[in-house]
Design a protein around this nucleic acid. Sequence first.
DNA 1: TTCCGTTGCGCG
DNA 2: AAAGCGCGCAACGGAA
Length: 563
Amino acid sequence: MRVAVVAGPGRTALLTELADDGSDHTAGVLLNDLPAAVAGYERSGAVRWVWADTAGTYPALLRAGARVDRCHDVRLVGALLAGRDGAAAASGPGGPVASAAGAAAGRPAMAGPGRLGAGQQAALFGPAEPGLADASIALSQLVATHAAQLRRISADPHPSRFGLLAAVESAGGLAAAEMQARGLPWRADAHDALLASLLGARPPAGLRPPRLAELASQISAAFGGRPVNPDSPAQLIRAFAAAGVRIPSTRSGLLRDVAHPAVPLLLEYKELARLHTANGWAWLEEWVSGGRFRPEYVVGGVVSGRWATRGGGALQIPRVLRRAVVADPGWALVVADAAQLEPRVLAALAGDHAFAEAAGTGDLYQALAGAFGGDRAKAKVALLSAMYGGAGGEASQLLAVLRRRFPLADRYVAAAARAGEEGRVVRSRLGRCCPPPSAEWRDLTASPDEPGAADQRARRSLRARGRFTRNFVVQASAADWALVLLAGLRRRLATLGGPLQDGPGLVFFQHDEVIVHCPQALAGDVVGAVGAAATEAGRLVFGDTPVRFPVTTAVVSSYADAK
DNA sequence: TTCCGTTGCGCG
DNA sequence: AAAGCGCGCAACGGAA
C-alpha cells in the first residue's frame, strides 16, 4: 500500500492512503503524531511512503525512532523524470526551448521542490489551524504529482527498469538519511595522533605546523635563499624559472621528473600541506563529534547517479586517515568493495560473449591478459582507455587489440561516443539520462568545417562530449548497480539486528564501496547479506548474464585494515 | 573588503 | 607511470 504524507509543524502531518494507480480514495487524515503513525503502518505490513522529499522529512522521523522501509521520493523521482523528458525533448525537433514548453504542458504543476516552504510550515496547524487548507492543497498536489509520476514511469520504453531506478533512488534517500544519523565511527584521538606524527604539534590558527614550516624554509634555501611560498604555484614557477628550470605547472606528477634540489622537499610539502588544509585539526573540530563523522550525502548529486556530499569532503577522505575509522568496542566494520565494477558493467551492457566469459572470473584484468600477451597491466590500460576515451601513447595499440578480440564491447562504447558527438543523449542501463549538451556547445559545434581556431575548438568540444557520453553509459550503469546493491543490503540489514542504532547499519557509501557497522557477532551474517545483495543487484540490473559482480568483504576493526 | 576563476589534489 | 571520465574543497591572486 502507498500512503502519501505531508508533514506539518512538530509531529503533525496530513496523510492519505492511495490506490494502486496513485489516486486517493480517502480524505486526508490529520495526525498529531506522525512518527507513531509511521511505526504503526510499518508494523502492520508492507507500505511505501509517498512524500515530497526524504531529506526534509525522514531525519525527524529517525530522531523520533521511526524507521521507514520503503518510500517514493517525489523530488528525486521528479529529477529522474525531468532528466529523461528534458533530454528527449531537447534532442527532438525544436530543441531545448520546445522541451521546456512541452514538459510544462505534460506535467502537473508543483511549487518549488515539492514541499512546503519554511514560512508555510510555520503557518500550518496553528491554534486555529489556519494552515490546514494549505496542507490540504499540498497533499493533493503531492498525490497528483505522484500519480503522474507513476504514469510517466510506465510510459518509459523500459518501465520495469525505470521503475526499479525510481525505487532504488528513493531507497537511497532513506539510506542517506540513516547513514547521516548513524555516522561513520571516527576516532578523534587516532586522527590527532596521526596529524601530530606527520606535522608536529598543532600550531595556532593561521600558522604552519612545525614540519611544514621547516620544509618551507628548506625550500626557500634550495632556491638560493629567495623567499618562496610553496602554496603559491605562481611563485614556484617563477622561482624555478630563475633557477633555469621552465615548467608549465607545479603538478606533483610533473615535478617528479624535474631535477632540482627543491623538488623532493616540495613533493613532501605538498602532500603534508594537503593533509593539513583538507583534513587537519580544523576539519576534525568541525566535522567529528561524539566519535562520529556525519557527512551530508547528496543522492543523485552527480549526473551519472553517483552520490555527492556537502561539506567535509566525505568522498575524498585520504587513505592515510582510514586508521581513524574504528569500530566501537564489541563492534566490527564490514568493508565491502565491488571488484573492477566498471569493466564488468561494460561486459554486461555490451553482451559481448568473450568479454562476459572473462568477466565471469575473479580477476577480470588477469582473465583478459591472454589477449595482451599475458600482460595484465596492458589489459587494464586497454579497458580504461576504452571506457574513458583515452588514446594516447601505447593505449591506441592496446585499443586495437581490444577492438579485435571484443568487438561488441568496443562497439557499445563507440556508439555512445558517437551519440555524444552528434549532440544526442545516452542512458544508463536502468534509464538515467545524461544531460543534453548546452546551448554554447551547440553553437560552437554547429559551425561548418572551416580551417582555423574556431574549428579546432569545435572539434575539441565534440570529442570531449563523446568522451563524456562514452564514459557515462558505463559509470552511470555502475551507479545503477551500486544503488540496487545498497537498497538490497539495507533491506537485509534491517532483518538482522535490533531496531535503528542497535543493529547493523550502513555507515558509508562511496560509489562502489560500502561500510557496515555491526555487532561483532553479526559480522558473518552481514558478509552473507552483502554477497546476496550483490548477486541480486546483478540479476535485477542486467538480467541473465554470465558476468559476475564479485564483492570483496573484510571484517575489520579499522577501515585501514580493509585492504 | 568581497567575489570569483584558476590551480592543484584527494577520492571512485 | 600516466591517461581518459566523474566529483568537492582549499588556497591563491586578480577583479570588482
